[in-house]
Amino acid sequence: MPTQIGIIGAGGMLQYHAAGFRAAGAEIVAIADLNEAAAKAAADKWGIPAAYGSPEAMLAACPGIEGVAVIVPNKFHAPLAIQMLEAGKHVFCEKPPALNAGEVGQMIAAADKAGKRLMFNFNNRARPESFALRGYIGDGTVGRINSAQAKWVRRTGIPGFGGWFTQRALSGGGPLIDLLHMIDLALYFMDFPEPAVVLARTFDDFINDKGFKGPWGIPDREGVVNDVEAAAHGMVTFKTGQVLTLQVSWAEMVKREEVSVTFQGTQAGGKIERLFGSDGIDATAIDTCELYVQEHGNAVNRSIVTSACEDMGRIRSAQNFVLAIEGKEEPINTPDQALKLMKIIDAVYASAASGKAVEL
């Protein structure tokens, strides 16, 4: 019997979750959304046999569900994930893991008590380029990574005004928490060392300027305060002596949207990068994966050629969830890694608010 999956949330990421679950051989049996009409429309579009107006109704009608995907605004990640874990279901939650590290701790406790797997959609780990670089890191080619730079910057990329993305109570923050993928990927390459000190600043220039709205996102809502940052810059030092710098923005005076991790190891350096055009569309982006080595006294830059992956690993990430709960593959991410990531995100915001370094 194929693994049965239920989905909570009829948002845009559903298309990738559905494709990934089916690629692993799972059966998507139902979708739930508080907007039941949206759930029914998504069910029709993606060939899901049943739609419900609440997670409770979905579980009651489909007791055979083994895993649940949570695709909802950030505020609801923790409560829904905990509810599903307490119901005895494995959980695959969209990023960010939750609003803060405290909520992630509660999610981990629920997963441990239920004996169920808790995973998050850190999809950039599942890109072919990431698999390739992890191979070079794992076989010793890179050596110890001393330093890394994580960047996801946009010039005009605010995802709507007055929606849940730009309300801190619903999102937990702006681009730092929304675009945390490259910070996560850098930590993944560095083997998640223990953070020591975080020093950071956030900037809210342009957060109310509709000239900086992205080409996608959600409809604007009038009369709602946009109280998140437009950009964040910071540095993390680790107890191992390693260091990570970060730059994340929705709206900042940069040339173009850039998504990248660069690292410097004791034996080699490397870079994974996606450069977007003015349309901000994945299909027109330029992907690069490189390794930097010294050979026979010469500086050699190796271009790592992998299969094309326009969806930035989103489908493969969802596929890994199913294969992991079936015991056919190791999970690409673990709850303790998500907790470390969110502790760093919390510290970035705390440092920016206080103007001082934060010790972890």
Rank of each mutant, 00 (worst) to 15 (best):
Pro128Val: 01
Ala350Ser: 14
Ala57Tyr: 03
Val225Pro: 04
Leu34Met: 07
Asn121Thr: 15
Val236Ala: 12
Ala18Ser: 14
Pro215Tyr: 01
Thr245Trp: 05
Ile158Pro: 01
Ala308Gln: 14
Phe263Glu: 04
Ala10Ile: 10
Ser130Cys: 10
Gly88Lys: 05
Phe203Gln: 05
Glu229Asp: 13
Gly25Arg: 11
Leu179Glu: 01
Thr262Trp: 11
Val70Asn: 09
Gly297His: 01
Asp220Arg: 03
Phe203Thr: 06
Glu310Thr: 07
Ala42Lys: 02
Lys151Gly: 05
Val153His: 03
Gln267Ser: 14
Ala60Gln: 15
Ser54His: 13
Arg221Thr: 10
Ser130Lys: 02
Gly223Leu: 00
Gln83Asp: 14
Asp139Phe: 06
Phe212Ala: 04
Glu359Arg: 15
Ala283Ile: 07
Gly172His: 02
Ser303Arg: 14
Ile158Lys: 01
Glu359His: 12
Gly313Cys: 10
Leu99Lys: 13
His181Ile: 11
Glu103Lys: 05
Val225Gly: 05
Gly11Val: 08
Val68Ser: 01
Arg302Asp: 00
Ser130Gly: 04
Thr202Ala: 08
Arg22Pro: 12
Phe203Glu: 10
Val293Ser: 00
Ile345Phe: 00
Glu252His: 11
Met107Thr: 09
Leu180Gly: 07
Met190Ile: 02
Ile137Asn: 04
Ala148Ser: 11
Arg302Trp: 02
Gly172Phe: 02
Met182Phe: 06
Ala39Pro: 08
Ile158Val: 07
Glu290Phe: 02
Ala114Leu: 07
Ile281Val: 14
